[in-house]
Write a protein that binds this DNA or RNA. Sequence first.
DNA 1: ACGAGTATTGCATATTTCTTCAATTTTTAC
DNA 2: GTAAAAATTGAAGAAATATGCAATACTCGT
Lengths: 161, 161
Amino acid sequence: MKIKNSRLDAIRLILSTQEIGSQEELLNELAKEGFTLTQATLSRDLHQLRVVKTVGVQGKYRYVLTRPHQYRHDGSEGEMRPIAPAVMEVNGFLSIKFSGNIAVIRTKPSYASTLAYHIDAYNFPEVVGTIAGDDTVMLVISENATRGAVLKALRSIIPNL
Amino acid sequence: MKIKNSRLDAIRLILSTQEIGSQEELLNELAKEGFTLTQATLSRDLHQLRVVKTVGVQGKYRYVLTRPHQYRHDGSEGEMRPIAPAVMEVNGFLSIKFSGNIAVIRTKPSYASTLAYHIDAYNFPEVVGTIAGDDTVMLVISENATRGAVLKALRSIIPNL
DNA sequence: ACGAGTATTGCATATTTCTTCAATTTTTAC
DNA sequence: GTAAAAATTGAAGAAATATGCAATACTCGT
């Protein structure tokens, strides 16, 4: 199903870049992109993508992507990369600081999970894992990686870094 | 409000130990604990706790806590912790990796907060604290603890480790 | 190309969740 | 202690989301 897959991609993209608070709202955005579907189908799409409705800082609801299933993560055996994410720039980035083997990335409110999603999806060997709050991503650096290497990796998805 | 706070604690505990798929189900569990409230109030409680409804591995819906509780965790005195949950095995564990003084634990989707909750509840001296995302727990190791000690401690609640 | 099996979808509706409003209850400031 | 302000709650209904079913579209093997 070509249409469905590109629609799911469109959903991911929209949720990564906009604050969507209801399925109807998302439906409108999808319509702008040329996708015609009903709320029923969208509900099923979101279920399949494991999208969740969270509560933002000001109490607003927002749909956000959860993470892709992580098959592996440290270059050891049995490679099996998750879906190659579309090359895209992640916005919402504010700053990055290091402490020990941890990088703390600040984002605009509610953008953290989106950024973490993209970092995870790329499966950088420099990154052991990430955790996202609302506006902060904590990233654990691999023991054999330098901060410079981490920055270099992140630059491929964060434009203004 | 004493009642409300203990009710929120009860909600946290229930969501950390059971797979709850709807507010009505949670309402029943709360009733067993002696809390009488309506679904309307529960909806507001969940909003306040920023609980989210996720999609579990088999496609089941499940309410999960978004952030681990900020009960304190450094062994010092005088702070109330949640009731230590009955000794139980936590499932959903996938892998654990270390980097510096951090352990990154991967879980099945949506199991991270549950696992973090239990780790917190046990108050292991080897663990300074945890934060949890959807499928990842980051655990900060005490300065005087070894990785082996952490593993040993975790083995008491994670069966297949 | 054909048919069986599978997947996708819309419609209509069921189910679930959220919110408004008014009525308490609790807290705060004197 | 008392009055005003704030918080909590339930009832009811609005809003949002999920799903059974039937129709249609696609896939795969032959």
